[in-house]
Design a protein around this nucleic acid. Structure first.
Lengths: 235, 235
DNA sequence: TTAGTATATGACACAATGTCAGAAACAAAG
DNA sequence: CTTTGTTTCTGACATTGTGTCATATACTAA
């Protein structure tokens, strides 16, 4: 008996298995349904009932896969965190002239958040309602604060950035990013990718490398922009 | 009959009335109870039942005074907004050397939030759960973004601040303030007033007036602080 | 004291959660 | 194809919290 059972378990857990277990398909259906819902409605309107009717199974089966809605959000957050740290690698870890690296990183950040904005928004919305999720969200932010702080300090040691207390600046920049990305990409209709990217990039460069001569090689930035920039008071 | 009725109403609405109406006392008791609760517990644990048992009346009477918990939070937010705009006046509207004005404003901001931190935190926590409150909170933030943006642009016109796009910087600074104030003063035990004040002030001055020689007149800052500042990596 | 209004209360209907025992679907072995 | 053991799904239930309403109680001014 034990051999048989073990082989079943082995097969079942094999990720290359061509026919994934039913449970995996259902689980994915729930995640897809959640995403679909959050593209058009805020997290506060999501209930287990609505979600599962979207996913096409009964309400109670939700609890086979997730403890509750916040647990589900935590799952989505984990995926997002990987993606974001992936695209942030150039500036956080790359070598060479930091400004092109920063451009690449922000380009990627905007791309990822443009695609997954609702997750960002929904997690931020849901976090205060659940202790665990609140912790996960705080850690997520803190990981970025730490990474950015370290990078600033490295660049300061290398003379690329003026010596100031790095952490508050890192926090400031990260909170602005979070606000802008959630605000513009958190729900449909989404804001303009290019303008968000440019706004974020401009502030980072100005804040960190502002005393250096600005490279005009920013891809996508219009040719001349030396006059007082158009006041972007659109909230 | 109409005279009698009117005089009652007049008396009742007179704020200088030595014996305020019962309803006013109850209303205040509810607000006090809410504040007391929020000093020690997060908004997510607040229910109408708990609140009213703290306030000393029955659960259902809550609804005579507020539509729901979010409506109550909105009331608390309004009070806070007044206080904050009050203390922010020096830098936002004052005349003269901007750095002492900024110091005064940040001193006041920290003082007010030290005293009312839980309101700030609870409103921020509760906002995503209610459309109206979300709007009120967004407006609250936007009012600040607007005011700071205007002030930066005025100082830019006067040559006190270098010419850059003011709004993203204003947003960045405001979001950092919100984060730090909520993080350190949003619940007990609260963080250190002085260190928060210094951190915020440093970033604002560095960001806005960074190219100017720094006045060492910051009240409360220790005499010499020219070496690399102690890395404040305490989250 | 009383009349009339203001305030407070308990009972109710409703919505959503999370659990559980049993039903149904599935997949491997005979 | 059937059997058998396991996985997955489901409806019913108990629980918690909300907001409303008719009615009871407590005020206040005359």
């Amino acid at each position: 008996m034990s051999e048989t059972k073990l082989s079943q378990i082995r097969r079942r857990n094999d990720p290359t298995n061509p026919t994934p277990r039913k449970s995996e398909r259902t689980r994915q259906a729930i995640l897809d349904a959640a995403l679909k819902f959050l593209w058009t409605q805020p997290f506060r309107d999501l209930t287990v009932g609505k979600l599962m009717s979207l996913a096409g199974t009964s309400r109670s089966s939700f609890y086979q896969y997730f403890q509750d809605l916040h647990d589900l959000m935590e799952t989505l957050l984990c995926g997002l965190e990987e993606d974001i740290f992936g695209v942030a690698a150039p500036w956080l870890q790359g070598e060479g002239d930091p400004i092109p690296l920063l451009e690449e990183t922000m380009e990627g950040l905007v791309r990822v958040c443009y695609q997954q904005g609702p997750i960002l928004r929904a997690v931020a919305d849901a976090a205060p309602m659940d202790e665990r999720l609140e912790k996960a969200w705080a850690d997520f932010l803190k990981d970025f604060d730490d990474a950015v702080t370290d990078r600033i300090e490295q660049h300061q040691a290398a003379g690329l950035i003026k010596p100031f207390d790095a952490r508050p600046i890192a926090i400031s920049l990260n909170r602005m990013d979070a606000y802008l990305l959630i605000h513009h990409f958190g729900r449909r209709p989404r804001g303009n990718r290019e303008s968000v990217r440019e706004a974020i990039l401009r502030v980072w460069i100005l804040t960190l490398y502002g005393d250096k001569p600005l490279a005009e090689s920013v891809p996508g930035s219009r040719a001349k922009r030396h006059a007082k920039p158009s006041r972007s008071k659109n909230s």
